[in-house]
Amino acid sequence: MNPVNYLYLAALLFTIGAAGVLIRRNAIVVFMCVELMLNACNLAFVTFSRMHGNLDGQIIAFFTMVVAAAEVVVGLAIIVSVFRARHSASVDDASLMKL
């Protein structure tokens, strides 16, 4: 199969993720959408790796996974503590960080 199709898929997934981040208010959903975007990037990297015939893309995909895992840990922890404090998982409620 033509590897370009994987790129189309990656772009589609990325767009879905981005739209979710912008539109949804539930922090968990926003979080999942961010993960979706990361994985879309991973897919693209792996595809490029295949297209160029070297391993650079795959290596970067591993890095992304490690970073994503770390990010999930920190992010979920923040969401949980915000939920405990305000009894809501809506991102709009946590708008105190403005001047």
Binding site: V30, V91, D92, A94, S95, L96, K98, L99
Partner: peptide
């Protein structure tokens, strides 16, 4: 410009995009 900093994560995301 300060008014753009409204505290909604979403707005920041839009500006990043």
């Amino acid at each position: 410009l300060r008014k753009l900093q409204n505290g909604y994560a979403r707005t920041y995301a839009v500006s990043m995009f």
